[in-house]
Amino acid sequence: MSSPTIPSVSVRVLLFASYAERLGREVLELTLPTPATVGGVLREVRSLPGGEQLPARPLCALNLSHVGPDTPVSGGDEIAILPPLAGG
């Protein structure tokens, strides 16, 4: 039994504020083929119902730090998609 399986990673995606409202949820569990990037996670989220309302290049964070779209993601990572910040 050696049916080939596509290597994949499972990540947790957090949505906030207006983006959570657009998707109707605050947390997603996604599985992506490797090698996966933050941009790949974003494309997946934008393909979900309501996700098309997210901008193509929102702010993103990986494990509590701001990152760019080319950043690789690993299994168990937490990716956050951040609406325009409005603190202060």
């Binding site: 504020a17 207006s18 609406p83 202060g88």
Partner: peptide, 22 residues
């Protein structure tokens, strides 16, 4: 203001509500 992930909802005198997008 530039980096901390905080969001603000404003409640207006006309009864509407909006997420602030600076």
């Amino acid at each position: 203001k530039r980096r901390v992930p905080i969001w603000k909802q404003e409640f207006y005198s006309d009864g509407t509500v909006a997420w602030v997008d600076p």
